[in-house]
Amino acid sequence: MTAVETTRPVRVNHGGLRFRAFWTLFGSELRVWLREPTGVFFALIFPSLLLLGLGLAIPDFSKPMVDAPPPWNEAPGVTSYLPTIIALAVGTISLTTMPVQFATFREKGILKRLSTTPMPPQNLVGVHMVINVLALIVSAGAAVVGGMVVLGVPFAADPLVVLLVLVLSTTAMFSLGLLVAARAEKGQTASGLGMLIYFPSLMFSGVWVPLSVMPEWMQEIGLYLPLGAAAQGLTMGWFGNEGFPLAQVLVLTVWTLVLFPLGVKLFRWS
């Protein structure tokens, strides 16, 4: 190091520098993220493992759905479980991975440390949003490919509807995850709060009781919950025989519009 120049500071705002720094941060965060085996397992592998495990273990899941209208009457029973597993992938990342991540950054002083640099801590949250989206693509993609290849599940009837619902589910659930992490001072607090929402959410999205046999009143409630609406919308898009999931799409949009600004507003950066 040499003696510093005496310069009056000016705001340096090179877009290019910021952009490069963001991706440098992304690369490093991704590498560090991949070094946590438990987190990686739940975010990436758990949904596919559950799908394949149940699909192979439960006899009804391998039998064709004879009561379903063609062409679905030849598809294995597990087909109706795949959309639920995609919703599970969204829920797992947004309620177990994300809140713990963000609260831990706060707990360890990483957010505050970044506040002292030219790179605001918002970028770290942004980087992890990108990482979580990538994780979701891998996780949901693995479930779909695994279901199709191993269990013989047919592909979605309306892939674009599935994609739309998936995107909206992600925005709604990630906003919920952000809100859960907004105030927690410790990773453990955020984890507890996340779990408190995670398990009931799984129930209404058909992980414990499949949507097809879920009582009417539970489906009614599920429609208004983000992960419930996600599972229902994904199911409708996958089978394509009940029309466009308009109510579910609206519910997910409203949740996003309410939760995201709230999460951003309440989020503590130190």
């Binding site: 310069t7 500071p9 000016v10 705001r11 340096v12 360890k108 002083g109 990483i110 505050k112 440390r113 002292t116 640099t117 030219p118």
Partner: peptide, 15 residues
């Protein structure tokens, strides 16, 4: 304005 020119080491470990 000062972020580029002021380096800070905080009390607690932050990594």
């Amino acid at each position: 304005l000062i972020r580029e020119h002021v380096g800070v080491q905080l009390q607690e470990a932050a990594l």
